[in-house]
Design a protein around this nucleic acid. Structure first.
Lengths: 156, 156
DNA sequence: AGCATTTCTTAACGTACATTAATGCTTTTT
DNA sequence: AAAAAGCATTAATGTACGTTAAGAAATGCT
């Protein structure tokens, strides 16, 4: 259990590494993402203050995702331990629910709806990340997000 | 812990219900799916023999998904119990991994790749479910799947 | 077996989003 | 402060997939 300072842009986990760590964000903003076969980056999740972020794989398996800092951040590094007594099961289950909803969204909702859902779910984050990262999270290009936003009348 | 026979087409869980059950498939094939705002059905997962299927929500929250039988099936009904000692954590974590990969796939891969991935991952299921259900699982229409398959040269 | 229903396929056309490219605007670097 | 790099926006064009519709094949029903 170690406290770390992570500067903006610093990568703290890479695909293929054996990383048995979980990071709890104290301040700042981290993200996890992966890079596809064509070299394109896709953001999987954001983690602002109070959130945990990690590749979910068992500590013995190589990571799928990269993790880096979107802002200068401070994090507490913990260990992935499937046997840990302090592992919060309801939290894990809620994690599965969130993922389930995301799959369902990606399957059925057009980008504009996914965007509005993102705005509602993560209002604090929206102002803090560049558009292209929001686009990446939504699974579309920055250009497409730009066009969508032009049509989308924001509730003032 | 009860053993049930579920006939093809029988719905054993509906959206909005408080269902605290987990189903272990002994024989046959179940699926979970949801119905979007436009009344369209989207298959979330299949569960053949040996698999578990359930809505992941905590037992105290209303379900998001429907569950029904694709084939006549036999299942063992268990209880969702977040405090249960017999809850298999590595299995939960692997579940999260699977979902993570699915999100990533939906974000970045075209339907043809998702189809081939499905073929590789669930070869036993492919023969047993109608095309339109595979299409639904992939997030495309049956017509699109049909066209994709024409282009896709199967390794005989 | 015969009829009805559901499922699969094909094709024409429509739409959401990707790609490419150009332009102005920030932010970073020196 | 100037130069460079990264970022957001717009528009033109391309493509994957949706929608609609029709016919063929498979499945279920009496």
């Amino acid at each position: 259990m170690k406290r770390l300072v992570v500067e903006k842009g610093k990568i703290i986990q890479r695909k293929g590494e054996l990383n048995s760590k979980v990071y709890q964000v104290v301040s700042g903003l981290l993200r996890s993402y992966y890079i596809d076969s064509k070299g394109k980056e896709h953001i999987f999740m954001f983690a602002p203050e109070g959130w945990y972020i990690a590749d979910t794989v068992l500590p013995t398996e190589p990571c799928e995702l990269y993790i880096d800092a979107v802002e200068n951040s401070e994090v507490i590094q913990g260990e992935k331990d499937p046997n840990s007594k302090q592992l919060d099961l309801p939290k894990l289950i809620r994690r599965i629910d969130t993922l389930q909803k995301r799959v369902v969204m990606m399957m059925s909702e057009p980008a504009i709806n996914r965007y509005e859902h993102f705005l509602n779910t993560y209002p604090e984050i929206v102002q803090r990340v560049p558009q292209r990262m929001i686009a990446s999270y939504l699974g579309i290009t920055p250009e497409a997000l730009s066009t969508i936003k032009r049509q989308h009348i924001p509730k003032k």
